[in-house]
Design a protein around this nucleic acid. Structure first.
Lengths: 114, 114
DNA sequence: GCGGCCCTGACACGACCCTGTTAGGCTCGG
DNA sequence: CCGAGCCTAACAGGGTCGTGTCAGGGCCGC
């Protein structure tokens, strides 16, 4: 029930080279035989096929998916990005600039070290 | 209370060229004067500075932040990535492969069209 | 035991990203 | 009105990404 890299390549539409690259990005990691051969099971094949359609239908690059993976593995990075995006793009009215800057910096401080 | 692009550049550590590039990525979009001049207010300056530290401390590229922005603007892309990542990396035991594949595809279907 | 796979590592090469720089034209302030 | 600064558009060059291909060396099945 496991395919060699060349077999997996032909049934999923990737090239063997790309399968190794995808593995290097941490996206699909096949099991290994005792001698080090990559062994692709049904789960990996399915993942490879859905990955392919994901790229096509959303116009995404492999590197982008790699970055999304990084986001999952580094919640603090995700948090930092979230606070950055959520920072009000315009200063609230009635608040002096200095105070507002201090407020925002404080907010970031808390969120980063939570 | 608004700075011209060159002034904003010197106080934030970016180059004018980069400020235009950052704007093009949709990350920091300054107001415009009637004649089309970019006008950076305190909010934009703060955003530029925090962006800079974000890149340094997390070893992230501008393009990555751009992709994160894209994720916020395209929830369906985020959903697609989530379901892909959450696909069990190994088939559950006791379930024939065919059934499991069907189950996963069905799950994706639902999640995508929710 | 040998032909055909697989492994890792490396080079190659186009495409695109990042950043600076320049050109040509408009705008601001004194 | 004139010098300094802004605008857009374009080119340029070093860097990285995606992908193929090759070399040198193990592993597998008949």
């Amino acid at each position: 029930m496991t395919l060699t890299i060349h077999e997996a390549a032909t049934t999923t539409g990737w090239s063997p080279r790309m399968l190794r690259y995808v593995e290097q990005l941490g996206l699909v990691e096949p099991a290994r035989s005792k001698a080090g051969y990559r062994l692709y099971g049904p789960a990996q094949l399915q993942r490879l096929r859905t990955l392919r359609s994901l790229l096509e239908t959303h116009g995404v690059e492999l590197g982008d998916v790699g970055f999304a993976l990084r986001l999952r593995r580094e919640p603090e990075l995700t948090a930092a990005l979230d606070t950055w995006f959520d920072t009000t793009p315009a200063a609230p009215e009635g608040v002096p600039d200095g105070d507002w800057l201090a407020f925002e910096q404080d907010k970031h401080q808390h969120l980063l070290h939570r």
